[in-house]
Structure formats: structure tokens, C-alpha cells
Nucleic acid binder design. Structure first.
Lengths: 239, 239
DNA sequence: ATTGCGAATATGTCTATACATAAGCGCAAA
DNA sequence: TTTGCGCTTATGTATAGACATATTCGCAAT
């Protein structure tokens, strides 16, 4: 006569340990039972216990050291995971019309400040684009983008007729590393006019740089009017 | 006479597959060799291959389905992982003095707007704190915090003499879920005075709410002067 | 007290095997 | 053409055992 809850053993052990950590019963620094103890407690092989603990360690919930044993990890540096919105997707979901407009487009050697930020040598040829994202005739964001033509030569020929540069790139060039910076800035005259907001309005500026295996791909600076946009994210330490 | 690179097989298989995905050689949707094929290729047991692929699947790099096989995952919704700065830590690292000052403190029933945001019933008793974070006598951030006394009753007695509320909570109450919102706001008169900035200056406002096993713990709204602060994060799809 | 060394031990990696299970595929019946 | 059923197959979970390796601990020599 077995019980109703017939989850897999792996999941049951994992849930038990997570529950004890999350509830605070096992505080950071607390020693977790040895593998052979858990093995006896759950009546399973060491491999099963080991796989559970390895997974938890990979997720940063526990810390393992040979011979020393396993302890509950100290709470990690706090971090926020934020979704970066895709206008076309959100517009479709909300049932409103989305358009984008390439305002400027040129191929130029990289300027000194950008060379500094990206680590590229001075004089590298970049495709420079500025784009306005519009939903229902209301400007939602202004995007300034640099694309490294050495890494993405085909961008030089692209007209970006169907997809905005960000979407186009995401579909074409895989990336291995990204850096994000979020700032708050007051809109200057030019920006205010483009976004149809008052000069001085606080705006969110998201700066995103991506690399592919060490080679710089692109830098985007996207500015959102602060009174209409926010970055949102949910996060749970347990995957 | 074995070769120099004697990493573990697990890591070698993983590196190989990751490299092929990251380079674009295996595009999203591409079918990955079956476990028994990789097993033959690397001359190892299926368990070893299985553990590698399970790990990659847990990291979201590949998608596995019984019978159908394993394919490279579609690029996920873009997200930015941003570090939330710990003033005490950063101050210590930079060798400057850090202080915080509790400006107001009261215990009140939750107001309607906050009840809406947190999902708590109207009238729930909350500890309301506002705190100023100061480094080298320059205000760096203004924090407004609500703490749910039903979940953290001991906060009612706490004086927050040694640690600011955020640090105190983090050490005492484990959390299982968090929600973050980042906004850009123009400083109003009161805030400008507290942060010693000009009225209207763009500020970053980080709103963070946490829960522990479904029970609301705390809400913090931290406002940083936009001319001095930014949120930064690095992210790589491979853990 | 200090240092050095060997034994003990907890975790790390890997194998060979077994059975479970979801899902695709083809064939046969309607 | 469509529906339903069973076979096949790829992954999911688990075991018992083996050897590797990083540390810690205690003991002995200095």
C-alpha cells in the first residue's frame, strides 16, 4: 500500500532540502547531512543523492567541498533579473499597431568614446543607426545602435525593412556575452522632440553591448520615456 | 603518453557542444546527436552523456523531449541581470565611509495602493521606514520600505542600529520570490532636498518586493540620483 | 608550540546495467 | 481519408560499484 504522492525520489529529496533552506530551518552555514546519511535516510544510492546535491550546488543554494562536506550557501549578491521588452511582441499581444522608423543610417569609423567602451581599435568601421519605435502613433523609445561590420559584414547591405535592427541581429548573430547598464537621464531638447515629451522628463536609458566569442557585435542605447515605461522582472532563487 | 589537456570528460563534452551552439554552427532548432551517438563519439557511457545534456537543458541551452530527441533551444526572451549594489560593501571596497540614517519609522495599517501592489488584505500592520544612505557625507540613495509584521514580527522591536533594514532582513528572512521594477523619475522637492540634488533631476527608482513561500515579506523603493548611479550587469547564457 | 606526514573521509567522476515513460511512426480497421 | 492501436525509440530515473582527489585530522618528530 504505497502513498499517493509518487514523485520521483530525486525531486522529493530536492524539495525537502530546498524547503528546509528556504524556511530558514537550515540557515546559511548550516552543515547538510553527508551523502551517505541522506542515502540511508531515503534508502537510495549515493549517485541519486549526489546528483541532487550537485544540482543544488550549481544553483548556488549550497556549497560543497571535498572532505569538509556540504553547507547552506551564504545569500548571494542581490541581483535583479529584468525583462527587456520586445515592442513588436507586446504590441501584437496588446492589439495595437507597431511601427519603427530608421531616422539615420551611416557607416563611420568608431569614435573615441565608443572605442573605449567596446574595446575596439580606433578606426573600426561601424554601422550607425538611430531608430524610433512607435506604437499607435505614439513614440515609445529612441534607439541608437552601433554594429561592428567586422563581425557582422552582412549588416552593411541590410535595409531593415521588415525587422528593426535589434530583432534582425538577434536572429542572425548568436551572442555569448552581454553587458547591460541602466541609467536615468533627463531628456534634452532633441530627444524630447523625438519622443514627444517635455524637455527634462526623466527617461530610462538601457545600454546593451554584446559579444560573440570575444568579438564585439553591437551596442544599443535605448531611451524610454520614464512616465510611460519601466523594466520589470521576477526572480526565484530556485530554478 | 596522454595529451596535455586532461580535463574531465564531462567538461569536454559540454565545452564542445556549447562551442558549437555559441558559434552558430548548431543554430536554434538544430538536432543534436542522440545520446548513443555522443556515447560512441566520446567512448563513454550513456550516463555521462546524459548528465551533460541534462545540465545544458537545465541551463536552457537545449530542449529535450522523449522520443523526439534533443534540439538547440530558441533564444529566450531577452533579459538583463543587474547587480543591486550593497552600499556598505562597496564603501568598504572603495575605502570610503558609509553611514545610514533612519529618517522616519512608524507602524501603520497598509494603505490602499500598497495593499494592491502586495496583495495583502487592507489593514495589515506594516513597519514603515525611510532611510538615507550616505557615503563620505554625500547622500547616495533614499529608501522607503514596508515590512510585513505578520511575517517578520521581530522587526517591530528592531532598532536598526548596526545594519540598515535591507541587510538586516536579508540575514534574517530567507526569501523565495522577488519582483523588481526599475523606473526613471524626476526628483520632486522633498526628494531633491534629501539627496542634495536639483529638483527635476532624473533618478533611478528600484522597487523590490519579496515573498517567502507565498507570504509577503517586504517592499523597498530605493531612489538613486541619476547623475551618480547606474545599474550594471553582465550576463552569459552559459553558467 | 610547531611542523610534517600519513591515514581517514567526503565529495567528484565514471561505468554498465535495468527498467520506466513519453511520443513518434506505421499499419490496420473503420 | 481518418481513427485507433501497438511497436519502437530516445530520454528519464535509478542502482551498485570503482577509482580519483582534495582536505582535514591526529600523531609523531622537531
Amino acid at each position: 500500500m504505497t502513498e499517493g504522492g509518487m514523485k520521483h525520489l530525486h525531486q522529493r529529496i530536492r524539495d525537502d532540502i530546498e524547503a528546509r533552506i528556504m524556511s530558514g530551518e537550515w540557515a546559511p552555514g548550516h552543515r547538510i547531512p553527508f551523502e551517505h546519511e541522506l542515502m540511508a535516510e531515503y534508502g537510495c544510492s549515493r549517485m541519486t543523492v549526489n546528483k541532487v546535491l550537485s544540482t543544488l550546488a550549481a544553483n548556488g543554494l549550497i556549497t560543497r567541498r571535498r572532505r569538509a562536506g556540504t553547507v547552506v550557501a551564504e545569500p548571494s549578491n542581490q541581483q535583479a533579473v529584468l525583462q527587456i521588452q520586445d515592442f513588436a511582441l507586446e504590441a501584437a499581444r496588446a492589439g495595437v499597431e507597431y511601427r519603427f522608423k530608421i531616422l539615420t543610417r551611416s557607416i563611420e569609423p568608431i569614435d573615441a568614446a565608443a572605442a573605449q567602451r567596446t574595446g575596439l581599435p580606433a578606426g573600426t568601421k561601424m554601422l550607425c543607426l538611430s531608430t524610433l519605435h512607435v506604437m499607435d502613433d505614439v513614440p515609445q523609445a529612441f534607439e541608437q545602435r552601433l554594429i561592428n561590420l567586422a563581425t557582422v559584414p552582412e549588416a552593411g547591405e541590410e535595409t531593415f525593412k521588415d525587422d528593426p535592427p535589434g530583432t534582425w541581429l538577434l536572429r542572425r548573430v548568436p551572442w555569448t556575452d552581454a553587458e547591460h547598464i541602466v541609467r536615468a537621464v533627463n531628456a534634452n531638447g532633441t530627444l524630447a522632440k523625438r519622443l514627444q515629451i517635455q524637455t527634462g522628463t526623466a527617461c530610462l536609458m538601457l545600454e546593451r553591448r554584446t559579444w560573440q566569442a570575444g568579438a564585439f557585435v553591437t551596442e544599443a542605447r535605448i531611451t524610454y520615456p520614464g512616465d510611460r515605461h519601466q523594466l520589470v522582472g521576477r526572480f526565484s532563487p530556485v530554478a
